[in-house]
Structure formats: structure tokens, C-alpha cells
């Protein structure tokens, strides 16, 4: 696994840079300005991928936690532990860029929009998970406790999202639906998909490197570690 992660990491990193460069070029330079929102809509190229990744990473985390709880597969726990900070960073980016998009569009830095609120609660879930991991010092104990928390969280996310949506429609009968675009022009959609790909690859690359770090930390007493080259780690 350690070797596999090492072999995959540069591929993910390269793909990430490639799609990032192409996506940014197409999104910032080639794509036309939106006729309603002008150029401010270009924030979408980081906001939407970050929001998508914030959920994707949580699902990865919860799935591997469940696998760890059921089959006691150690590597699944390592994946969950490595994912949490990356997911939290994506969530924070989604929130911040959402705020910077909201200011010119809605005239305010923050509105209690259903999606923004859910995203904020998701950030709290990530932070709680990381805090629990940090607080429990024995590795076995913290792994299983954190896994239970992640699974409980993923069961709750749909309920939280549903309740927030419901609460939102109650308090704001006329929701501002500027962000709900029925369809996007292909010249705008292509860079968006590229950016989603770039963020996905960024996550995978980061995950692979973190996996190697965590495996080394946990297995530092294993004999194979002594056979590695300290400079390259291979």
C-alpha cells in the first residue's frame, strides 16, 4: 500500500496541475462573462468544485470508517484520518468563496441560505471529528471512536440538510435563486468540469502523500521501513 501510494501520487499530482492550468485558462480567460452577474460568476470555478469535494471527502471518510468498523481493515482508518483535514480545507474554501460571491450578488457577506448553512454545519462536523481524533491519545481507541463519529455524522447529514432546507423555506418564502442556473453554456461548463477534476486530483494526490506519512508513523517499528532511502522515501 505504501509503495502503491508512492507510485500513484505523482500521477495524481500531474493530472491535477494539468487540469488546473487548463481549467483556469478556459474559465478565467476564454469563457465569456455572464450576462446577469458579469465576471463575478467566475468564482464558481472554485466555489462549486470545493463544495462538491467537501461532500465527496466526507463520504469517503465515512465509507472507509464503516469499512474499518466492520472488517477491521487498518488502511481504511488511515484513509479516514488522512482525509479529514483535506475535507475541512475544501469546506472552508467553499464557505469563504461563497461569502465572496454573495457580497456582490446579494449585497451581504453572509445569508442564511440553505446551502451555505449546511456547508457551515459540515465544517463543524469535520472539526469535531478532528478534535476527537486529537483528544484521544491511544491510537486504537481514537481510531474506532472517530470511525463511529464519522458514521453517525454521515447518517445525520441528510437529515440536517433536509431540516435546514425546510427551515430556510419557512423563513424566506422568496428565496434568491440567482445561483440556481437551469443550464450553463458549454463554454462555461467545460472549465467547471475541469476544475472539479483538478480538485479531485488534488485530493487524491494529497491523500496519497498523507497515507505514506501516516503509514510510516504507525509502522515505524516494522523492518521494511529500515530498507527505505530516507531522501526519497522509496
Amino acid at each position: 500500500m505504501y509503495r502503491l501510494a508512492g507510485r500513484l501520487a505523482p500521477w495524481f499530482g500531474g493530472l491535477c496541475l494539468l487540469s488546473l492550468a487548463l481549467g483556469l485558462y478556459l474559465g478565467l480567460v476564454v469563457a465569456p462573462a455572464d450576462y446577469e452577474q458579469g465576471d463575478s460568476y467566475r468564482i464558481i470555478y472554485i466555489h462549486v468544485p470545493a463544495a462538491w469535494m467537501s461532500m465527496f471527502v466526507y463520504v469517503v471518510m465515512a465509507t472507509s470508517s464503516a469499512i474499518f468498523l466492520i472488517w477491521r481493515l487498518k488502511i481504511a482508518d488511515v484513509v479516514a484520518e488522512a482525509s479529514a483535514p483535506i475535507g475541512a480545507a475544501f469546506t472552508a474554501v467553499a464557505l469563504l468563496t461563497g461569502s465572496f460571491w454573495g457580497k456582490p450578488m446579494w449585497g451581504t457577506w453572509w445569508i442564511w441560505d440553505a446551502r451555505l448553512t449546511s456547508e457551515l454545519l459540515l465544517l463543524f462536523l469535520y472539526l469535531g471529528y478532528m478534535a476527537l481524533r486529537g483528544a484521544l491519545d491511544t491510537p486504537q481507541g481514537s481510531a474506532r471512536a472517530a470511525a463511529i463519529l464519522a458514521v453517525v455524522g454521515v447518517v445525520n447529514i441528510p437529515i440536517i440538510h433536509f431540516s435546514v432546507e425546510w427551515w430556510n423555506t419557512l423563513h424566506q418564502p422568496a428565496t434568491i435563486s440567482k445561483l440556481d442556473k437551469p443550464s450553463m453554456h458549454i463554454s462555461m461548463l467545460r472549465p467547471l468540469l475541469l476544475m472539479v477534476l483538478a480538485f479531485q486530483m488534488l485530493y487524491f494526490h494529497n491523500l496519497m502523500v498523507r497515507l505514506r506519512t501516516l503509514i510510516l508513523t504507525r509502522e515505524s517499528r516494522a523492518s521494511w521501513v529500515a530498507e527505505l532511502n530516507p531522501e526519497t522515501g522509496n
Partner: peptide, 8 residues
């Protein structure tokens, strides 16, 4: 990487 491998 540096510390773990060296120690090992």
C-alpha cells in the same frame, strides 16, 4: 520520512 527511516 527522514526521522522514521533514519531511526529504523
Amino acid at each position: 520520512r527522514l526521522s522514521a527511516i533514519r531511526k529504523a
